[in-house]
Structures are given as structure tokens and as C-alpha cells.
Design a protein around this nucleic acid. Sequence first.
RNA 1: GGCGGAGUAGCUCAGUGGUAGAGCAGGGGACUCAUAAGCCCUUGGUCGGUGGUUCAAAUCCGCCCUCCGCUACCA
Length: 542
Amino acid sequence: MSERPRYYLTTSIAYANNRPGLHTLYEVIGADAMARWHRMGGDDTRFLTGTDEYSVNIATTAAERGLAPKAFVDEMVALFRTADAALGIAPDRFIRTTDPDHQRAVHEVIRRCYANGDLYPGTYEGWYCPNEGFRAVSDLIEDAAGFHCPNHPHVTLQWLSEQNWFFRLSKYQAPLERHFAEHPDWVEPEYRRNEMLGFIRGGLEDFSASRQNATWGIPFPILPDGSSALRSDDTWDPAAGTVYVWFDALINYITGAGFPDDPAAFEQWWPADLHVIGKDINRLHTVMWPAMLMSAGIALPRKVWVHGHLTLQGEKMSKSRGYFLDPMDMVKSLGTDGTRYVALREVPFDRDADVTWDSFVRRYNADLANDYGNLLNRTLTMTGRYLDGARPEPTADGRLAAAWPAALTAYESAFGACLLHDALGALWEFVGAANRAVDAEQPWVLAKAAKAGDAAADTALRGVLGDLLEACRLIAFAAAPFMPTAAAEAAHQLGLEYAYGADGNGGPPLRDLLAWGAAPVGGKVGTPSPLFPRLETESVEP
RNA sequence: GGCGGAGUAGCUCAGUGGUAGAGCAGGGGACUCAUAAGCCCUUGGUCGGUGGUUCAAAUCCGCCCUCCGCUACCA
């Protein structure tokens, strides 16, 4: 087993009922950048993402399209995988809840919870909207005619009851409160933690862990009398019902770590260091999931990070209503790295943000084309023209050498706090410093004097260009978790080796490369070519 | 309704007692290595409203207005 520190992080699994939008993949891009940061940093890293594929809704949607549920989700999952690839997302495993090992994991968790007395047969009753399923009374509209679903006001609601297995969440109120108290930063940002703590303190009800009549789901492995639902012909008795999606979906995180098939792997990877999730599923991850794990006797994840949502022109993204950004279209216009950058720079990772296509293009042009890409381009052009491409060494006492340590510290600190937008902001402060240094030092003036025989000017010129090349190198490598392809290309143009693989593994510990002056001595720079071509707003449409 | 958060320049936000800030967008300028990019300067705000505390309030307190989050069986 490896001696390196290990790091296991996950995204939530995407509901495979439609093709993916940027609002869904935003989280995966962020987690992928984090995974790369750890891989490049030398950690033994495992990054899990995937799809949530069961549920009554998916079975219904599949039927509407005339497909078997599995054929339908296969189609959706292919779209997710294509989009992931286009965005440069490199999971160590793409998990699907329809994977066979996930069913084994779910069954094992259920057996453990049952053995612990936390699963019992009961009856669930409530208002049922044929289009949306059971609805909380607080979500319904009440008028003289009775209750109505807010989204389907003309559909008659039914009062239904069904026989379900229940999970004894009520038993875990005190243990959860204790866990929140003893691990104050286990849910972040803090306001998200407080919301859930408030929810827990308000009292917890048991929740359904199975559905009686849903067939598209993992078979529930236990019959109401406690006997196994596995029949002699090796099939599961449908009378036991299926596992409720929200009970099975969360378990993917341990399936993906090797539970229960590979105890050695599970020992290595669990507990997860980080679950990256969206605010809409906070309760599932920070109330239900830890209770399930406690019941099954499994350690709790170390941290849950709750990011915000993207809205498009003030509207919740929704494909059917036209408020939708297709990541594939973005990649077409902004490139893989451009899309990753603007998504993570323009949307604060700790709260909601409204985005527009224009805001992305503006950000791309300002930060990538104008500031960073142009910095690299002008630096390389001057090195080629004034020094015949020979790469001079950076100085130890220039203004950029002095500015770098603080920039790196701010970058790492924001990254460690999951504030990815702030990390990029800190790095781009340094990009600005490098651009200001060009104008302050005026290498073209130095070059003219050097050509006329001024030895001091020649020394100064080499120092300035050495510093600028070093700044470009540091920016490229530091930004590599966000923009891996551009980092490799920038290194190539700088005449430097880029030893990391496509997923960020391999290569030296990134921290070693991020020291001022860590560049190899000597050599020549390559041919400059615009890294991020400038976009004209008018000619680019999503 | 309850609990929590927020309202500051066109946009996104920083600023917790001492004469209003940043980035982007807009305007002007000098330069020229560069992706007509970069750099310098600059327009622009009764800091949601109102009443108080204080020598002094965006900043503290009261009330009001607006917006947002959480408030369990879609996930």
C-alpha cells in the first residue's frame, strides 16, 4: 500500500433523467480541479463521480420514450460521460447505481441497519401527485376545493398509503447533534451547517427506505417477517419492494471505495475526505447519510462541502424553459479549459450566482485572453526577438520574486478552504503584477540599449525576461488543476517539461515546482501561439 | 408563520465607529513587446428607508420595506 497521503473525494451522483447542463456539471468541474490539485500535489487520490439511475420518475420517463429503464439510463449516462470527457473530468471511477457491486453494497448496509434494529416495516401515508409522487402538505396549495400540487394544479391529488420499510432516523437525533458539536467544520460553509443543525434540533422523523410498488430499483433484500427476500431460483421476491432511491443513492460513496467486496480498498479509502454536493441535497448528506452510516457501523465522511447553484439570467436553469447552458456548446466556444475556468471563477463555490453567456465571454476575454494568454504571448515573443529564444534565469530579488510567495499562500489557502473562485482570484492578482512589471521595466527599451552595446541594459533585460518567464511558468503550473490542457501547452511553449499525465497523476510534487526559481536552467523557449484566442462577443453564441 | 442571511458605483462584491473601495463594463492618455491585448488616469454611489446612541455610523441599537436560504418522502 502506498506511503503517500491519500485523499478520497466525491461529487453527488447526477440524476440520469436528462442530458446534463452546466448547472449539474459545475460541481463535477470543481471537484475535478480539487482532485487534480491533490494528485499533482502527490497525494494518492481517488475521485468518484457518477449517476443516480433508479426512481419511479426515471421509469416513467423511459416508458414515455418507449424504452426499458436500463436502455434509457444507458443513453443518458453516455451523454454524461461524453460531457465529462469534453470538460476534462477524470474520475478514478464513474459509478452507476445500476452497477452490480452497488447492489451488493446497498444490501449489506440494509442488513446491518436491520440487524441494528433501525429498519422496520410500517405504513407511509400522504398526498400523492401522479406527476411528482408524494408531496409534503407544506408544499401544497390549499383552497376551498382542497389541496393541489403547485406544479400541477389541475391534477387531482390522491391520499395514498403504502407499506414501506422505515429507517429509524429519530433514534439518531442526539448522536447527530453530538457529531455536529464535536466536528464543527464537518459541514461547510458554516451557514449550511447551521441550517442542518437547526433541522436536527427541530426533531427527526423516521423516513421510508423502500417503495412498495416501484419496480425500477434495487430489490429490497428482506421480507417484512425478517426473512431473506432471495428466492430459491436466485431472484428477489418483488413482494419485498425496492429500495427507495435516496436510501440507495447515498451508498454509492462507499461502493466506490470498495465496500463490501474489497475490504482492503475500503480500509484505504474510507472515510471519504470530502463530499462535494449542492445545497438542494444538504439534508440527505448531513442528516440522513451520517445516521445511516452510524446505524451500519461505518465511519462518517470527514467533510461535506455545500456549493451553491447557478442561475441563468435570474432563472433557475431548466432545459424545457430555455434557461439552459449546454456544456458541450460552451466547450465549442471557450474550449475545455476556458469553460472550466469561467465556471469556477465566475461562480463563487460557497454561494449562488447568476451567470449569463456574456458574463462568461467577458471573463474569458478579460482573464484568459487579455491578462494571462497575452502575458505569455508577449513574454515569449520578446524572448524570441531579443534573446533569440534563449531562456535566461530569473533573478532572486526582482519585484515578481518578492510578490510570488504571498500570491501562492493566498492561492493555497483559498484552495484548502474550497473557495475555488478566491484561489483563482489570488493567482490572477499575480498575473496582473506580471503585466504591470512588463510596463514598468520596458524590456523593449532595454533591448535597444543592449543592442547598442550597453552591458548593464543587457543584464537587466535578461533579468526582466527571466522573471517574466518564471512568472508564466508558475502561473501555468499553479492553474493546472483548473486548466490542465493549457498548462501542458504553456509549458511546451515555455520550453519546459510537463510530466503530469492526463488526469494529473505522475510528475513531481506540485509544491516543488511552485517555488520561485524552480525552473530548469538554460534551454530555449518554444514558438508562441495564442493560448486563449480572444472571442468577439457578437460572434459567439451558446 | 418560525429560524437564519443579505440590501454599498451599470454588474459582481470587499469594507464592523473616524471625511466611501476593488474587479469588470464606460471615458481619456502615453507607450508599443503582445491576442487593437497590456499600462496610467478617470466618470460614476443621499452605503434599502426611518428614528436613535456618539464629537463622529455603511459600520452600534429600534422600527419599517425588499430579496434570499432552511423549515423531510422529486432527488
